[in-house]
Design a protein around this nucleic acid. Structure first.
Lengths: 144, 144
DNA sequence: TATTGTTATACTCTATAACTATA
DNA sequence: TATAGTTATAGAGTATAACAATA
């Protein structure tokens, strides 16, 4: 079947990027099912666990999501008791999203699950190649 | 705002992959708007231009799409006169998708547009780095 | 008047199952 | 009975506009 592999499509970086990402996303979401998270909601939870105390606005900008999507993600995490919304006293329009203790514990479990998923997705690469890939991707991903 | 960049999320390969892909997909689709194509439909068109004469089943497997999605993509391309469905005489259940002359011309234009989009997406990389990225991604993307 | 978060809506994408015609 | 393609449908994901509270 894979005679189509010879085509020029298989050389287009954007095609390879899309396919690698599809694998990574599928593995990641599958690994997070038992933790009632998805890759999207994990990203919000992970940021809420950091010391930066991000607002929803900042989450939307950093994750390149529409603010209305962040609402839905935070709603879900809050309903699970993993994060809390606290209104910033300096500007009472903005709501800061912080993880609860349960949220921090869940985040650790999720990170471990995602690490395991990554070992599957990137199993064909050596550790050095994996680091090189991360560096190249960082350059592409964070280039504004 | 980008103080969130310090977080551990920014080091997760799957996060970087997702973000790089989002950029690539957005740029690619934007570049294809004038040609009435999307990255998805371009992939089908490109394969229909090759000498392999793929069936819809093969397209679905190679592109990791559900057969019903391939139907919709081929419908769109066919409505534009870019591809034709011909029933395989050896097995009259299977339909082979081949590009028309107009389709081949459109594919060339689309490839040029996507190449240009890629120069933007991957502008932070040297040619050698770009090749290295493609090789690493190929390993990840095509590893079954 | 502008901004943060929210709600509502619609549009695309994706996944599933049932149907047809062929084998 | 099984397979290729098709149709229908529902669920995610995504984008947009309008609204409330605050600045």
């Amino acid at each position: 079947m894979e005679r189509l592999l010879d085509g020029s499509l298989s050389e287009a970086p954007s095609f390879l990027l899309a396919r690698a990402n599809a694998r990574s996303l599928a593995q990641g979401n599958a690994a997070l099912v038992p933790l009632k998270l998805k890759v999207r909601s994990y990203a919000v939870l992970a940021l809420a666990c950091g010391p930066e105390r991000p607002s929803q606005k900042e989450l939307a900008q950093f994750l390149r999501l529409d603010p209305s999507q962040v609402v839905a993600l935070v709603d879900d995490l809050e309903a699970q008791g993993l994060v809390e919304r606290t209104t910033d006293q300096a500007d009472r329009r903005t709501k800061v999203v912080v993880a609860t203790d349960i949220g921090r514990e869940r985040e650790r479990e999720a990170r471990a699950a995602l690490d395991e998923a990554d070992t599957i997705v990137f199993r064909s690469l050596t550790a050095a190649e994996r680091a090189a890939l991360a560096a190249l991707l960082r350059s592409v991903a964070l280039d504004d």
